[in-house]
Design a binder for these strands. Structure first.
Lengths: 131, 131, 131, 131
DNA sequence: GTGGTCTAGACCACT
DNA sequence: GTGGTCTAGACCACT
């Protein structure tokens, strides 16, 4: 479900990234509640504090708002912000991937081929699931 | 010089990645010595042990061999291995970037555009420098 | 407890060897946690980083897996791998010992007698202790 | 020629071990000169100081005597001492090998089989060469 | 508390 | 000078 098997990225960030994508994709709609910390922690096999950490990240970005005693809700402007953030995040990662390739002197053509392979592989793999 | 301003990847791994790229690109040739750990540590402003950690990683991958009291040398089969490793690493990162995009429901066309932007940006940015 | 009084083998490797033996012998079972690096460091009177180094070695060999914030756990296939690794290590050491003997022109019979002596001595000495 | 490809034992000790075996085996006779530091260093592809270090070790053990300006000579009681020392060294290594095996819970029978394998392998490998 | 990374500083084997 | 190991002490992510 999470996409960094190498464990190089902190868990809380992987979770935040995932939810951000869900919001950007409209899987969670404005004013819809995210799953409770405990529910999601259970589902992901992760400590509730880690989920809390992820939610705080999304709150700081203005994607969600906490309503006391009720839960975390997608904010009115959350979808647009999530789309922007996700696109930025994707771009940053593409840039890192491509810099790795350039350092190894791969040609642009080789890089584009790797991109196409990844597009195919991800098409099958990533039925985005609502968390 | 190092490419993860976000600080998600540990320093020693960034250093290993960079050198691996240098070896893959033929910037360091077989039987050529890498800079000594102290020299490189000074240049990068990090602790020699951190560089050592990076060098151990490259040694484990069979890219370099240590000659006691002399230095770390690119192994005869190091270049090919470095190319393979670098390509794999690039692919993995592309895959992660693209999964981020897919979760946010970006189209393949949008992703390809981001790739092209990143190719342009990286062309200027990453004149691979010999460490 | 550690078995190289001569000090030829680095500490972290002696620790890794010891734990590998424990895992091979089933003293640590799959999904069982090894002692924490701090606990073990205290017990052995060494620096936690030294234990960490040993643990990384075992992780690289696929004998244990780290679960962040919880501990190092014997992997499902760890026991078999540990047995293989330990047998290989034993064989390599026997080979070195025997080459030493052959260079000094000891007969095979003399070598076998030394082996029997060592078998007796080690029977008493090495009640393998769970670290 | 040297028997620790893993590089875990210091070079100077491997060289001392080798020469000690040669003396024990009567390949160097009492009053015979060992090769000069420079000659041996060249032959082994090693720094003369490393050879010097090995020679000092043998001198300390009373196996050889330095005659100023001439070279290092096997001492009158050197052969016996070398045999004792070599046997001790062999025994110590056997003991370490066997402790490794016992920790992994290998049976005495398995250990004896490994010994026999090593005896066969070493028979072919170790045509003791005069350095 | 537990693993993982990093620094500052030291010492050893080898060149 | 060069790689390899070790210590003491610190901070981060996660439980």
């Amino acid at each position: 479900m999470l996409n960094d098997p190498t464990g190089h990225h902190p868990l809380f960030r992987q979770i935040a990234d995932y939810l951000r994508g869900n919001i950007a994709a409209g899987i969670y709609r404005p004013d819809e509640a995210l799953p409770s910390k405990r529910t999601l922690a259970l589902k992901l096999g992760v400590n509730p504090l880690t989920v809390q950490h992820a939610y705080s990240e999304l709150e700081r970005e203005g994607l969600v708002e906490s309503r006391k005693g009720i839960g975390m809700f997608v904010s009115s402007r959350g979808v647009g912000r999530a789309r922007n953030k996700s696109e930025q995040a994707c771009y940053q990662r593409l840039l890192q991937a491509i810099q790795t390739a350039r350092r190894a002197d791969l040609s642009e053509q080789q890089i584009r081929e790797l991109v196409e392979q990844a597009l195919v592989a991800s098409e099958k793999a990533s039925k985005t699931e609502k968390l």
